[in-house]
Simulated scan of single mutants.
Amino acid sequence: MSYAHLPGLPVVDAMTPPVLVLRGPLTGDEVNGPCDALRTLLESGGRRGTTGAVVVCDVGGLGPPGLAAVNLLARLQLTARRCGGRIRLRDPSPALCALLDLVGLRFEMEGQPEQREPPLGVQEAVEPGDPAV
């Protein structure tokens, strides 16, 4: 029996989410392009996670954070949810994280465990005499 070898690593390629690279500086009018690109990536098969397709948004090139960046990320989050997916931020600056926290927007960051996953290497301590659960 023989078969054609497909290019790439099938297991790795199936697990790697698509990436949307965002560049700055931003103005308030530059929202529709990235939202359309995100919608296309989600519809073309972002990596399926526990709650839908995932697209990584590389925000390292946005430049100094401001309200235009907050507006763009909020609209991208809304677009992803409307498409049944979610976004994960890659390489956010500490200033951007602080600004997002200040305005009350929560984003999943790449490299952090998902909400339902315990961090790797953390084990619960069991005290002698604790009742079994």
Score class of each variant (00 low, 15 high):
L96G: 09
D13K: 06
P10M: 12
L96D: 08
T51H: 04
R48D: 02
R90W: 00
L62C: 08
G63R: 09
D58T: 07
D36T: 10
P65W: 04
V21T: 09
A80K: 05
P7W: 02
T50V: 10
V54K: 01
L67S: 13
G24W: 04
R90A: 13
D130M: 15
S2Y: 01
P128D: 14
H5A: 13
T51I: 04
P25Y: 04
P65T: 10
A4S: 09
M15P: 05
M109R: 15
Q112H: 14
G46L: 12
D58Y: 03
D36C: 12
A69S: 15
C35L: 01
R88E: 13
R75S: 12
M109C: 15
G104P: 07
L41V: 05
E114V: 14
D58N: 10
L78C: 12
P18Y: 02
A69Y: 05
M109E: 14
P10F: 05
P10V: 09
E124F: 11
F107K: 09
Q77F: 03
E117P: 05
E110W: 07
L96H: 08
L96T: 10
G66M: 05
R47D: 01
D130H: 09
S93W: 02
A132R: 12
D36Y: 01
P17M: 02
R116S: 14
A37D: 10
E108W: 08
A4K: 13
P64D: 13
